[in-house]
Simulated scan of single mutants.
Amino acid sequence: MNKFKLVDLYVLIPYIVLSITGILMVYSASSYIAMADFSNPQHYLLRQSMYVLAGMITAVIGYLFPYKWLKEKKLVMIGTGVTVLLLFLVLLFAEEINGAKSWLSLGPINVQPAEIAKVIVIWYFAYILSRKQKNVVENLWKTIGAPAVLVGFICFLIFIQPDAGAAIILFGISAVMIFASGASPKIGVMFGAGGALLLTGLLELIRHYGDSLFFLQEYQYNRFLAFWDPFALSQSTGMQLVNSYYALSRGGLFGVGIGQSVQKTGYLPEPYTDFIISILGEELGLVGVLVVLGLFFFLISRIYLVGIRAKDPFGSLICIGIATMFLVQGCINLGGVIGLMPITGVTFPFISFGGSSTIVLAGSLGLVLNVSAHEKGHQLIRRKRQAHTAS
């Protein structure tokens, strides 16, 4: 009970508000499709509510989990090994849906191992880098060589599902955590410039050679075509982006009202998952979108702040990795919704429908709250000691 007194309300309250907003928007965005497919407009509402409840339970577990156990080598290695095994099982046994193998059926539940991998990689890197922080500063390549190979292998297993969005998120998380652990800023600049050049070259390759490239399937190439000229493909692969524009345009400044979206009635595919922000914009307008984004980025800023203030390198890296996960995932989703980047199938944290994503993201916030409480507890102990010494 004493630990609950140390909970960081600046993390907890935005999470709860975003989760409730997500339940409301999932219901609004999915009611038409749910009625058509299941004769029950509340089908996705009930499922999302259960996911949020399960996520909150997971967050409590993450918060109450003994902090010192998080730094146990055996637990870290077991978590990493199980994640790699699940990714292999997905490739071997998962049913292909929309051209990808992402979901693993475990009895009555479906699990998306790529979502689990995000938090496991953060945990693994926080453990490794916090133990070798001095070596990272002195000899980066020797220190991160083996861990980087392992994480690169995990990214590869996710990429060939194929799930490029999750692989990009993992790469972004890993890069930020490595440089947050003490790597030279010059190396960071070199990585950034190299990444920009690689991305530019990759886009040019895709533009000229299309789906004849060995790593690109036809539906993925069509997403790039839709990104470059969505209105030319408005009746096929460009439909999502074009109707996303229509939804955001129709919403204007204050929206047409909750539940009044037209685009969700069969015009905009995936209105309650990848493109839920478009429906939010149509119903609540630019003001509604900015409020949600403001709350979301406030949460990210607070997590970064907890990480920066943390005295323990392990806890600091955990927070920085989780904040980066939220930031990269949110930006990729928004980029796809407004046409700044190709659609990748990445959902918006806490707002989009999804079981694995909702539960894993909530659990990761539980870890942030755990780190915050750990730091607050140590501060209270130091103050008591100082007060005792002064008396």
Rank of each mutant, 00 (worst) to 15 (best):
K3I: 02
I23M: 13
A29C: 05
S30H: 06
S30I: 14
M35C: 10
N40R: 15
P41E: 12
Q42N: 13
L46M: 15
Q48M: 08
Y51C: 09
V52G: 02
A59N: 05
Y63S: 08
Y63E: 08
L64P: 03
P66M: 13
K71G: 07
M77C: 00
G81C: 03
V90H: 10
L92V: 06
E95L: 01
E96Y: 07
I97S: 11
W103N: 08
P113G: 14
K118A: 01
V119F: 15
I120R: 00
I122T: 00
W123L: 13
Y127Q: 01
L129N: 02
S130W: 12
N139W: 09
L140H: 06
L140P: 00
W141M: 11
T143L: 03
P147D: 13
A148P: 07
A148D: 04
V149E: 03
L150K: 06
L150C: 03
L150F: 14
G152D: 00
F156G: 04
I158P: 06
I168Y: 04
S174N: 05
A175N: 03
M177V: 04
A180I: 03
S184M: 00
P185R: 06
G188L: 07
G188Y: 10
V189T: 12
E204L: 12
I206S: 01
H208G: 00
Y209Q: 08
F215K: 00
E218H: 04
Y219I: 08
Y221V: 06
L225N: 03
A226D: 00
D229F: 07
S236R: 02
T237Y: 15
Y245D: 04
S249G: 10
G251M: 02
G252W: 09
G257I: 15
Q260W: 15
Q260E: 15
S261T: 05
S261M: 11
G266Q: 01
E270F: 12
Y272R: 06
Y272K: 12
E282A: 10
E283R: 11
L284H: 06
G288M: 12
L290H: 09
G294F: 09
L299Q: 01
L299R: 01
I300T: 13
R302K: 14
A310I: 07
L317Y: 07
I318K: 08
I320N: 05
I322V: 15
I322C: 10
M325H: 14
Q329L: 04
G330N: 07
G335C: 13
V337Y: 02
I343G: 02
G345M: 14
T347H: 02
S352Q: 04
F353P: 00
S356R: 09
I359V: 14
L361T: 00
A362Y: 07
S364H: 03
V371D: 01
S372Y: 01
H374I: 02
K376C: 01
H378V: 01
R382M: 13
